[in-house]
């Protein structure tokens, strides 16, 4: 019975060894690949988070500093009083109606401040204004947020330099980002 002899024989030692070795090396390669994919995507997400939030914060500050008419030394919001310092910025912005026209003698007030790693914007709009009163979380990866003014007297301030450093961690890597921009008050 030559046929059954062929079909019934098992694997030789060499064949088994080769299959086992191939299987093990494939598993190792796959593990490395998956590990690397995972590491790369974590790294990239952290990079996007740090870089993206630095830009978002900069845009958001710019969008209110440009129309602002003055930097206030202090302003009492409904929740608390905020003071302009190197880490907080209180702005007085002429209110605008739905078509974007300035409403005379009415103002919206905004403060940008950082608290540990989070940066917030608190906006208190006049009832006539089309801006919406809210506290908004702008970034949660803040390392430092520094405002520099062109004058120590806040009534004279028309230029603000904003310096943002963000920091995120991707496993053992520290990803940091830095933005520095100068804004001039257009309605000063």
């Amino acid at each position: 019975m030559p046929i059954s002899k062929i079909t019934l024989r098992g694997f030789t030692m060499i064949e088994t060894l080769i299959v086992a070795a191939l299987g093990v090396s494939m598993l190792i390669i796959l593990t490395i690949l998956i590990f690397n994919f995972n590491k790369t995507s974590t790294y990239q997400q952290a990079l996007i988070a740090s870089s993206g939030s630095a830009s978002t914060l900069m845009r958001s500050i710019g969008s209110l500093v440009l129309p602002a008419s003055a930097v206030l030394q202090a302003h009492t919001f409904s929740s608390a009083t905020y003071t302009s310092t190197s880490t907080a910025l209180v702005l007085e912005i002429p209110s605008i109606d739905n078509s974007g026209n300035v409403i005379a003698n009415t103002y919206d007030y905004a403060v940008f401040y950082a608290s540990s790693t989070k940066a917030y914007r608190l906006l208190e709009a006049n009832v006539l204004s089309s801006r919406v009163s809210e506290t908004k979380l702008l970034s949660s990866t803040i390392n430092t947020l520094i405002f520099t003014y062109n004058n120590t007297d806040f009534t004279q301030v028309h230029t603000i330099t904003v310096d943002v450093r963000t920091q995120t961690y991707a496993k053992e890597d520290v990803l940091s980002d830095h933005r520095r921009e100068q804004f001039r008050l257009r309605n000063f």
Partner: peptide, 29 residues
């Protein structure tokens, strides 16, 4: 995976470059 890494790097650099350009124009104005 490799290509997306390049895209992420470019987008970060783009945002920094935009910051530099805006800052320069603002100070010139």
């Amino acid at each position: 995976a490799i290509h997306s890494g390049v895209l992420v790097r470019i987008s970060k650099s783009q945002s920094i470059a935009l910051s530099i350009a805006r800052n320069k124009l603002e100070s010139l104005r």
